[in-house]
């Protein structure tokens, strides 16, 4: 049991630290600088510590992990989890899904400040979609994101009940944070894989997908051939069969309007 964990730790620390310096230089705590660690600690102890532990080292109960350690969390993932309402969870066995955030902006800032004192992790990325390149973002999106989130951003199924979420509600900062930290089952895309300009471009394309050009009419959820097939059977074939019954219906009871010549 110990060996893999040890290995993991040994590998994680230098890598994450190195990655961090590359992205952010030394400003580890953008977003944290405004927050109040004291108030953050109070919020943490009431809202988070039951799963993540009083010292942020995670809680294990009956051999099951109730909540992961936050020693490598950092501002980006904390911001992502809190602003998307995924955390806090009412029940540690629930799957985190997007909800209305439980804390206001001020409280989130305080919590980020406190969590940042527990360990180091990627800073909240500065995502500016106005500088992003839409077409390049589309290409990067199709290469890196659509396998799970689908070409239209509608999300998709993962193994054993997990799902990649729909992207339509994500803010640029949340998109950037997710790319950098890989929340849940999502892989991590570090600054060597995607530059910050590339993240801007992806975020711009994801925002575009919120209201893409539906030149063809009703979008049908942009779920591909399934709703299309459903529509042709229900509306196409269904309506035409109704028309057929009208045409081929029993007209013999109708009076002949004009007698035959």
């Amino acid at each position: 049991m110990i060996r893999p964990r040890l290995l993991r730790l040994v590998m994680l620390v230098p890598l994450v630290a190195a990655g961090l310096y590359l992205v952010t230089g030394t400003s580890t705590a953008r977003g944290a600088e405004h927050g109040d660690t004291g108030r953050g600690r109070e919020l943490y102890l009431t809202g988070c510590s039951s799963c993540h532990g009083i010292h942020g080292k995670g809680v294990e109960a009956n051999g099951e992990q109730r909540g992961p350690s936050l020693e490598h969390a950092g501002p980006a993932i904390t911001n992502y989890m809190l602003t998307t309402g995924r955390m806090p969870l009412a029940n540690s066995e629930d799957r985190p899904v997007r909800k209305d955030p439980a804390y206001d902006t001020e409280q989130i800032r305080d919590l980020i400040a406190y969590v940042s004192t527990l360990g180091e992790g990627p800073a909240i990325p500065d995502v500016d979609i106005t500088t992003g390149d839409l077409a390049a973002g589309g290409e990067l999106y199709r290469a890196n994101c659509q396998p799970c989130h689908s070409a239209s951003g509608a999300g998709g199924a993962l193994s054993y009940g997990r799902a990649a979420p729909q992207l339509s509600k994500a803010t640029p900062t949340q998109i950037g944070s997710a790319i950098r930290t890989g929340p849940g089952q999502m892989p991590v895309f570090g600054p060597d894989t995607l530059s910050s300009h590339e993240v801007d471009s992806i975020a711009r394309y994801v925002k575009y997908l919120e209201h893409p050009d539906d030149r063809g009419g009703v979008s049908l959820g942009r779920l591909g051939p399934i709703p299309e097939g459903f529509l042709i059977w229900v509306l196409g074939v269904g309506l035409l069969i109704v028309i057929c019954t009208w045409i081929g219906g029993r007209t013999r009871n109708r009076r002949e309007v004009e007698p035959q010549p």
Binding site: L12, V188, T193
Partner: peptide, 19 residues
């Protein structure tokens, strides 16, 4: 990578994936 950039081992972060 698909645009021809050489990949260094360090480019792939933990939990990372590159085609």
């Amino acid at each position: 990578t698909d645009d021809g950039t050489l990949i260094k081992a360090d480019d792939v972060s933990v939990d990372g994936v590159i085609t």
